[in-house]
Simulated scan of single mutants.
Amino acid sequence: MINILIEILLRVPIKSLLCFKTISKRWLSIITHPHFSVLCHLNPNPAILGLFLTCPYSLPAKPEFDYVHFDKKIPTKPPFKNLKFIKNSSGISILQSWNGLMLCSNSPSRLAKTNYYVCNPTTKHYTTLPKSVLETENSKIHGISLAFDPAKSPHYKVVCVCDSMSSPQHYQIEIYSSQTGLLISYDHWNGSIYWISTIGNLTCLYYNLDFERLGVIPMPHFLDDQGTTIAYFGESCGHLHLTKISFYTVRFDVYEMKRDDSEWFVKYKIDFEHPDHELNYCNFTILYLVRGKRKEDAFLVLAAPNDDKVMKYNLINKTFEKFCDYDVEDEQGFYSSTIGAFEYIESLCCV
């Protein structure tokens, strides 16, 4: 009978499951069990329902987030407007979102260091990460990333890159595991974390969590490196993407990494030179690249600060669609082209 009940509950929307926890102790036990959350996420590419948008001008005084739902045919309220369920959430910001979980930090005071949190905005549960043993007066955190694949495990890891305590020319890694609750330090550098290194020549690095190994991936060959900048680097539905845009053109390529991490290849060709649109690099920002289950579901989310709007550009049929208005003007009347965009996926996973 329990197996039949589980099969039924697995077909129920997550929002309804949160309400069903109050029906009985047995239902509560089933829905909150870590194994049940894994069963809910057996799809390796869970659907991204929308994006939370943040602007640096509004965060310190008003830590609220604008939500853009991808399916306009389904009216929906924002899942949340702030992260007040986190204790001492004043000035808190989202650093990363990954498969339903979010990595966040608060604005530190002069006497206290930054606190880091992993939260599940669907269940409104969170955990405070232990203080880094590597962050001292002479050592700082250069980057921190969340790694979480609910189709493989209900546990997540947070990887922190700091200055090495033994050599000023090297970096040291700390890894927090939710399974053990421990923060472990390492002196060395598909289950990997990727980033772009801008020290010297542009380099794509990855750290494999399973084998605790650092690797280097050759960057794609760009025809013209003059006046170009990395405009987007991110993952969607199991695909890693990279774009490099020139200041003088609106034609560029979107690269995708091969599954074996061997090289990049051109996945999409973009051309914004259209009589109905006047986009150039100076007045648009790529916020996110979204891949869906179908080929035609792939699109870019673009911010046009000068026009105070966020747009959707379909990568297959080359059409634009307005998502929402978004004002990025500060109190002094200055505009920021830097907007954070973080995916929202419903999840029951524990933190």
Score class of each variant (00 low, 15 high):
Met1Val: 06
Ile2Asp: 13
Ile2Glu: 15
Ile6Tyr: 01
Glu7Ile: 00
Leu17Met: 07
Leu17Asp: 02
Cys19Trp: 09
Lys21Cys: 06
Lys25Leu: 08
Ser29Arg: 12
Thr32Lys: 10
Pro34Ser: 11
Phe36Pro: 01
Phe36Gly: 03
Phe36Ser: 04
Ser37Asp: 02
Val38Trp: 00
Leu39Ser: 12
Cys40Lys: 15
His41Gln: 13
Asn45Gln: 13
Leu49Ile: 07
Leu53Gly: 02
Leu53Asp: 01
Pro56Leu: 05
Pro56Ser: 08
Leu59Ala: 01
Lys62Gln: 13
Pro63Asp: 07
Lys72Ser: 14
Pro78Cys: 05
Pro79Met: 11
Lys81Tyr: 10
Lys81Asn: 14
Asn82Ile: 06
Asn82Val: 08
Lys87Phe: 10
Lys87Pro: 00
Ser90Tyr: 13
Ser93His: 06
Ile94Glu: 03
Leu95Gly: 02
Ser97Ala: 15
Asn99Phe: 10
Cys104Pro: 03
Cys104Val: 11
Ser107Lys: 13
Pro108Ala: 10
Pro108Trp: 13
Pro108Ile: 12
Leu111Phe: 14
Lys113Arg: 13
Thr114Arg: 15
Cys119Gly: 10
Cys119His: 11
Asn120Tyr: 09
Lys124Leu: 07
Thr128Glu: 14
Lys131Ala: 14
Lys131Pro: 00
Lys131Asn: 13
Ser139His: 15
His142Ile: 05
Phe148Met: 07
Asp149Ser: 06
Ala151Cys: 14
Ser153Pro: 09
Lys157Leu: 01
Cys160Gly: 02
Cys160Asn: 08
Cys162Gln: 03
Ser164Asp: 15
His170Trp: 05
Gln172Phe: 00
Ile175Gly: 07
Ser177Glu: 12
Ser185Cys: 13
Asp187Trp: 00
Gly191Asp: 14
Ile193Asp: 07
Ile199Leu: 14
Gly200Leu: 05
Thr203Phe: 00
Tyr206Gln: 04
His221Tyr: 06
Phe222Asp: 08
Gln226Ser: 06
Gly238Leu: 10
Leu240Met: 08
His241Thr: 02
Leu242Phe: 13
Lys244Trp: 09
Ile245Ala: 00
Tyr248Thr: 12
Thr249Ser: 15
Thr249Glu: 14
Val254Asn: 03
Trp264His: 04
Lys267Cys: 07
His274Gly: 02
Pro275Gly: 08
Asp276Tyr: 09
His277Lys: 04
Leu279Cys: 11
Leu279Arg: 08
Tyr281Phe: 12
Asn283Ser: 11
Leu289Met: 11
Arg294Leu: 14
Leu302Arg: 01
Pro305Phe: 04
Asn306His: 09
Asp308Gly: 04
Met311Thr: 01
Tyr313Asp: 03
Asn317Ser: 07
Lys318Trp: 13
Cys324Trp: 03
Tyr326Gln: 00
Tyr326Met: 03
Gln332Ile: 06
Thr338Pro: 00
Ile339Asn: 01
Gly340Gln: 02
Ala341Phe: 00
Phe342Cys: 01
Tyr344Ile: 01
Glu346Ala: 04
Cys350Pro: 00
